[in-house]
Write a protein that binds this DNA or RNA. Structure first.
Length: 505
RNA sequence: GGGGCUGUGGGGUAGCCAGGUCAGCCUCCCAGCUUGGGGUGCUGGUGACCCGAGUUCAAAUCUCGGCAGCCCCA
């Protein structure tokens, strides 16, 4: 056993499924033992992490003209059912409250699966004139979805506990479209702060939010090569406005429907931080969202004459860091140092400071950075330590971000027409030239095989994309949101945009 | 959507096929001693057969149902 050894009993990160469940438990993020399917309990450490992550999101929204609100959990059936396309997308997964006490309710109440139908009837009342626009509101709430597939903590759940949903209304289509771009920029900044890499794509026609004109989504990559959708942004146009009769009087005195957008992020962003950065020792957290940023571990011998000196130096450091608004813990519990190292590594504490008798003699202390487990010495003065902690935390963030993006980009596989043609011809040389439909299938299978390693990026038209989905079980993420590259479909040679495809969560 | 597997102290498990002993082990937790620069060691202690029904003299073990969890395929 040495510093290179993984945490005892923690499955390797390669077994992502086991690693993920185990780490949620061991790092005290959530307790999944609550006896209802698809829900779980946030523990103090996990809740703190969640709060830090969502306070970034809140500040980004607050600073860009959004205001926080809170709408009710219950939605009357009559409102929920108003927008036909919307309800078609959701009705299979709505939880219903049908009884109050001993009595059947006249109007069943839905637990919101999302809040359009709760919020928009109120926008109808709030919006009268163009002076009331734009409206940009958001809330962070729990929403309920009756998932029938297997659930997974923070990733696919029946109670989404941390749904941040923003809703905007605008006087013109251009303003709403501009808001879509603003939302994309806000989300980019958010995931950059979490050091979580992403691609931004426009979802295909068949995978849009029910009722939306366009859906743009962020996806990140899990260690096993599957993608996870971590944010969505929808252009609603005036579809909901027509349903809920949300109109305003413009400066010419004409009544017009508002143009709307909505965009959301759930606790999957917490799962992303855990999955993207974690390693065989446990969590690795970006300093900004780490509930504990620095842990000080005193190396004390019960009968050592320097014991009290060590402890008082540690306390001074703790107080100095605390005064500098750094989240610090002095672990003076009665455990051996090694046990403390493993414990705090599991919890992803970005920086550990060790101080022992040896260090007091040399006038230095030991810094150990969690993301790479490197050690170095720092002069043992409070000013130097505080300064070096700041610098080190900033460096940890930059390195984590760079590493995460490098791993992410390594898992994006670009396929050109030449590669696919060559490989499929090779795999089936005998009849590749004569039978075109067989060779098309070969190309699709090849892409399916490549997807095992991550996201495949290829020129493919929507129609062939759908065929790929049906043949291989692949998901078509979509076309790059800000890309304008055109090429020829690798299957049917029709002119088309790039497509991202992958296996998904 | 379809198929398979599992449920034993707080966590991980043995026992189940072939019904019958005080339900064994590791870990955590509690007490005491010991130890202390990468999971100290010893002694003692608390704590469990998912829920319900059935079969049986007898059920952790067999059957059915419920609830919960996991895996595979689409």
């Amino acid at each position: 056993m040495n510093a290179g050894a993984a945490a005892k009993g923690l499955p390797r990160r390669d077994d992502f499924s086991d690693w993920y469940s185990e780490i949620l438990w061991r790092a005290e993020i959530v307790d999944t033992r609550y006896p209802v399917k698809g829900v779980c309990v946030w523990q103090p450490f996990g809740f703190k992490m969640r709060s830090l992550i969502y306070s970034i999101l809140r500040s980004l929204l607050d600073d860009s003209g959004h205001e926080e609100v809170l709408f009710p959990l219950l939605i009357p059936r009559s409102e929920l059912m108003k927008e036909e396309e919307h309800i078609k997308g959701f009705e299979g997964e709505v939880f219903w409250v049908t009884r109050g006490g001993y009595e059947e309710l006249d109007v069943p109440l839905a637990l919101r699966p999302t809040s359009e139908t709760a919020i928009y009837p109120m926008l109808n009342l709030w919006i009268r004139s163009h002076r009331d626009l734009p409206i940009r509101i958001y809330q962070v709430v729990n929403v309920f979805r009756y998932e029938t597939k297997h659930t997974r903590p923070l990733i696919r759940v029946r109670e989404i506990t941390s749904f941040k949903e923003a809703h905007t209304a605008h006087a013109s289509r251009e303003d709403a479209e501009e808001q879509v771009h603003v939302a994309v920029e806000i989300y980019k900044r958010f995931f950059d702060r979490l050091a979580v890499p992403y691609i931004v794509t426009e979802r295909p026609e068949w995978d849009k939010f029910p009722g939306a004109e366009r859906t743009i989504a962020f996806d990140t990559l899990m260690p096993d090569g599957r993608t996870m959708q971590i944010a969505t942004i929808h252009m609603l146009g005036d579809k909901f406005a027509r349903t809920f009769d949300i109109t305003f009087e413009d400066c010419d005195g004409n009544r017009k429907f508002v143009q709307q957008t909505c965009y959301g992020i759930s606790e999957r962003c917490v799962a992303a931080v855990i999955a993207v950065h974690g390693d065989d020792h446990g969590l690795v957290l970006p300093p900004e969202v780490a509930p504990v940023q620095v842990v000080i571990v005193p190396i004390v011998f019960s009968r050592d004459e320097m014991r009290d000196d060590v402890l008082s130096v540690c306390s001074e450091l703790r107080d100095a860091l605390d005064d500098a608004n750094i989240r610090v813990v002095l672990d003076d519990s009665d455990e051996r140092p090694g046990a403390k190292f493993y414990k705090w590594e599991m919890k992803g504490v970005p920086l550990r400071i060790e101080v022992g008798p040896r260090d007091l003699k040399t006038g230095k202390c030991v810094f150990v950075t969690r993301h790479d487990l490197n050690k170095f010495h720092v002069n043992l003065s409070t000013e130097e330590v505080v300064g070096m902690v700041r610098k080190t935390l900033a460096r940890i963030y930059e390195e984590m971000k760079a590493n995460a993006w490098r791993r992410f980009n390594d898992m994006i596989i670009s396929l050109s027409a030449e590669t696919t043609a060559a490989s499929s011809a090779e795999s089936d040389a005998s009849d590749a030239s004569s039978d075109t439909s067989a060779s098309d299938e070969d190309v699709l299978s090849l892409i399916g095989a490549k997807m095992r390693g991550g996201i495949v990026n290829v020129f493919m038209c929507p129609k062939c994309g759908k065929a790929l989905k049906e043949l291989t079980g692949a998901s078509v993420l979509g076309t790059p949101f800000d890309g304008r590259k055109k090429g020829k479909c690798v299957v049917c040679s029709q002119e088309c945009a790039e497509l991202y495809v992958a296996r998904t969560y």
